[in-house]
Computed example of a mutant assay.
Amino acid sequence: MTILIGANPIGWTNDDLQEIGGDTPLEKCLEEAREASIEGMEKGHKMPTDGAALKGKLASFGMNFVAGWYSTELLKRSAREEFEAAKAHIAMTKGAGANIVIAAETSNAIHGDRSKPLSERPRLGKGDWASYGAKMTEFAQRLADVGLKLCYHHHMGTIIQSERDIDALMAHTKPPVHLLLDTGHARWGGSDPAGLACAYRSRIGHVHCKDVREAKMREANSGDWSFLDSILGMGKELGVYTVPGDGMIDYAAVFRELKGYSGWVVLEAEQDPKKAPALPYAKKGVAHIRAALNEAGLT
């Protein structure tokens, strides 16, 4: 069994609000990730979109490509149409040497809209889950047929946010659809990350590790803030998310429920780097992940 520690560049430069960390060069991000002992990186908007170029850029810093986010619109189109729309992403992923597609439904999502509070996030009706799950399963199978694994990313501000949403997604999809367990989105969305790991271990194909500042989460929920205001923090204050070891999540408990998992665990911290400098936070997060993996007996 092999577990590799990767990172998403969102701790350096934000993808949803690109001016956050916008003045941070890609080279600085990759240099600092290497210094923090990161073994691979997920796709960020400053990285090459050509697979071979992306692979080469990361290799020059001693890292592999992990995966990239793909926004599905299966509420609007068929699985066949989605697969055609994903052709460029598929080519990039395969060309860069990865086999994971991180998928999330964004056709009606609000997480990138700073004007909308999270209470306005979209929801699927009970009668909509079966057809949506069937389309997601077909899309995942089409990806599997070309050697790629779809890992669905539950996410604040989308139709798959709460524990009930995750349960419905998993109940109405088949095994070609894997779950991306995101500890931070799970906890903020009302789920126990360790409980999700236990319930869906056989279908978890990818793991994102970010922590939650409990007091800030409660403040954001009480004030009904937007997702972006919540993660970036108001004024000089820090936001809801931080790196493992700096919040409320018990990572050893999560990893104990992932016995037998092989693959990437990816460090994330959606923060403003001017308030929370990326390198020291990355080092703290990697150290905590390693300690928790060791405590859980996964190293």
Score class of each variant (00 low, 15 high):
M1D: 14
N8V: 14
N8Q: 09
W12P: 01
E19C: 00
G22I: 02
T24D: 00
A33V: 13
A33F: 15
R34M: 03
R34Q: 08
R34S: 06
I38D: 09
E42L: 11
H45V: 04
P48H: 06
G51Q: 05
K55Y: 09
A59T: 01
F61K: 04
G62Y: 06
N64K: 15
F65L: 05
A67N: 11
Y70R: 01
Y70N: 01
S71Q: 15
E73H: 15
K76Y: 12
K76M: 07
R77I: 11
E81Q: 15
E84L: 11
E84P: 00
A86E: 12
A86F: 10
K87V: 06
H89N: 13
I90P: 04
A91E: 14
T93D: 13
K94H: 12
G95V: 02
G95K: 13
A98F: 11
A104K: 00
A104I: 14
E105R: 15
S107M: 06
N108G: 15
N108I: 11
H111D: 07
P122G: 10
W129E: 02
A134F: 11
K135H: 10
T137V: 05
F139Y: 04
Q141W: 06
R142T: 07
L143M: 06
M156S: 04
I159P: 05
E163I: 06
I166W: 09
A171K: 13
P175G: 04
P175H: 03
V177I: 00
L179W: 11
L179S: 07
L181Q: 03
H185I: 02
W188A: 03
S191T: 00
D192T: 11
D192F: 14
L196P: 05
A197Q: 05
C198G: 05
C198S: 09
C198D: 09
R201V: 03
R201K: 10
H208W: 08
C209H: 04
M217P: 05
A220I: 00
S222Q: 12
S222L: 10
L228I: 10
L228F: 08
D229N: 06
D229A: 12
G233L: 01
M234L: 10
L238G: 09
T242W: 03
V243A: 13
D246S: 10
D246K: 15
G247T: 13
G247P: 08
M248W: 13
I249C: 03
I249L: 08
F255K: 14
G263L: 07
L267K: 04
L267Q: 08
Q271M: 14
Q271Y: 02
A276V: 14
P277L: 09
P277E: 04
A278W: 11
P280C: 11
K284A: 06
V286G: 03
H288C: 11
R290G: 08
R290V: 02
A292P: 09
T299Y: 14
